[in-house]
């Protein structure tokens, strides 16, 4: 975990009282999670803290371990190491009790081909301990779903809607959504965002949202955790993370510069024929500019830090795994 992650995890800015009691305002608290599948180590000391009432983004490249983590949180799988608490309970031992208070939307969902969408929504809601019929009908309308169709005839996007409606129509404390918008068209994605923002405004619903869609995360999440190869690499608020991103600088210089490489925070430096290009962390920006000025600047282009750059950096950086 980065330095920042540790900082922000300890700064308890959230004061919402927890409905469940215990845990002191954390809905999910996983530390050092380890999960192995035979020789494959899917989770390798993963940390994840989600506070009560927040929408928490959960990001990472394909195969990073997001789904595996969620399955452990649901008590479907058992961790080989580390500790995990969910809504103040043990997800493995207290699974059925805890599941009354949460709803889960799996990533790639299919239903029983002979049941209609409406039947699936009702069934899952009842098994969870009941759902609000008014809210159900409202959601069906907003997502423009025909609940009378048999599940086998639904497209991928429509299956995703069924799962979302089933989860959102229940009055639960915690929503666990594994790539919930994959397959939704842009219009429906917008509806999804509205609904989640509404949930958020209630203040007592916690959402764990695994996603690959940056815009979605930026629009919805209070805080987020980025994982790679089964380990957490960043945790924090969006602003915290933005601060972590680098500015890209390209400059034409009038004189030679040699002090740049020695500055902490300067990365990927290239220089030729009086042109330099590099990325620089927020901390290194000032000394780097100083040394450019000293050398004499003919022209300068800077690209502001973007979250996208941060994600791409985490997604592509070659580690011991196999990033894509």
């Amino acid at each position: 975990m980065s330095e920042l992650a540790r900082k922000s995890a300890s700064s308890a800015r959230h004061v919402e009282p927890e409905r469940s009691g215990g845990g002191g305002g954390t809905a999910i608290d996983a530390e050092g999670l380890i999960k192995r599948f035979g020789k494959v180590t899917a989770l390798d000391g993963l940390d994840l803290t989600v506070r009560t009432g927040e929408v928490h983004g959960f990001l990472g490249p394909n195969g990073a371990g997001k789904t595996t983590t969620i399955r452990i949180l649901l008590g479907l799988m058992r961790n080989d190491g580390g500790s995990v608490r969910l809504l103040g309970g043990d997800p493995w031992a207290d699974a059925t009790k805890l599941h009354r208070r949460l709803a889960y939307v799996p990533g790639d969902v299919t239903f029983w081909p002979n049941l209609t969408g409406g039947e699936v929504i009702d069934l899952l809601g009842r098994l969870r301990g009941g759902l609000d019929p008014r809210r159900r009908d409202d959601l069906i309308e907003r997502f423009e779903l025909d609940p009378r169709k048999k599940s086998r005839t639904y497209s991928k996007g429509n299956r995703q809607k069924v799962a979302l409606i089933a989860a959102l129509a229940s009055d639960v404390e915690l929503l666990m959504l594994d790539e919930p918008t994959s397959g939704l068209d842009p219009l429906m994605e917008e509806v999804f965002r509205e609904v989640i923002l509404q949930e958020k405004s209630r203040g007592d619903r916690t959402v764990l949202l695994s996603s690959h869609i940056l815009a979605e995360v930026e629009a919805l999440c209070d805080r987020l955790t980025i994982i790679r190869d089964g380990r957490s690499v960043e945790t924090g608020t969006l602003d915290d993370l933005r601060h972590l991103t680098r500015t890209t600088i390209r400059a034409e210089l009038t004189g030679p510069v040699d002090s740049l490489a020695g500055i902490a925070g300067v990365h990927d430096l290239t220089s030729a024929d009086g042109r330099v290009a590099f990325d620089v962390d927020a901390d290194g920006l000032e000394p780097a500019l100083r040394s450019l000025v000293t050398a004499g600047v003919r022209s300068l282009v800077s690209q502001p830090p973007s979250l996208e750059e941060l994600f791409l950096r985490h997604y592509t950086r070659t580690g011991n795994g196999s990033p894509r």
Partner: peptide, 19 residues
């Protein structure tokens, strides 16, 4: 061909046994 079905689940479909 598939026909349309009920929009709501019947009372029986509310337990693992019902499913």
């Amino acid at each position: 061909a598939s026909r349309l079905g009920p929009a709501h689940a019947g009372a029986g479909l509310s337990s693992p046994l019902g499913l």
